[in-house]
Amino acid sequence: MDDKTAWSDARLLTAVADGDRRALEIVYGRHAPWLVLRLGRRCADPAVVDEAVQDTFVAVWRTAGKWTGKGDPAAWIWGIGIRRLLDLLRRRPVAVAPAYEQVMVSAEEQVLLGVEYGDLGRALGALSPELRAVVQATVLDGLTTREAGKLLGIPTGTVKTRMMRAKALLREELA
C-alpha cells in the first residue's frame, strides 16, 4: 500500500498540495537531513536550526500548491529554509555562521573544486574570507543583498561594496 516512497519529489509535492500528510512525511524524510546539515553550517545553534527546519516543512505543507513545478524541488525547499532561518535569526542575537569562516584548502580539494567550478573555484578560494562570505551568501545561497547582510551581520551597503570588490577581483583572477 505504501508505494508513495517511490514517488518523485514533484509528484509528492502535488499530493502535499492536495492535503496528503503521508506525502509530506516522505518529503520530510528525504529533504530534512541535508537541510539540517546545510542550515547548521549557517547557524551554530541547533535549536534554531531545528526550528527553521520545522517552519520550512510547515511552509511546504501550506504553500506546496504554489510550487511551480519548474526546477528541482530541493532548490525550492532550500529557498524556504534559508529564509526561515533568517527570520529566526532576525529575532535573536546573530549566531556564529561557521560556513563563512576561513579553513585551509588542501591541494586535493582544490582539484575537486576545479571539477565542480573550474577556475571560478580556485578564484573563490583566493578571495579574502569577508569577500567570499558575501559571494557565498548571494550567489550560492541565493539570498538578496539585504538578506545576506542580515545573515552576516553587516549593513546592506557593505554587502554591496564587498560584492563589487569581489567581482572585480574575480574578473582579474579569471582574466
Binding site: 492536495d18 492535503g19 496528503d20 500528510r21 503521508r22 506525502a23 505543507w61
Partner: peptide, 15 residues
C-alpha cells in the same frame, strides 16, 4: 493522530 492512524486515514487527515 493515533486513532486516525489506526483506521488508516493518516493520509487524508488534513482533508
Amino acid at each position: 493522530r493515533r486513532v486516525i492512524d489506526e483506521v488508516g486515514l493518516a493520509d487524508v487527515s488534513g482533508r
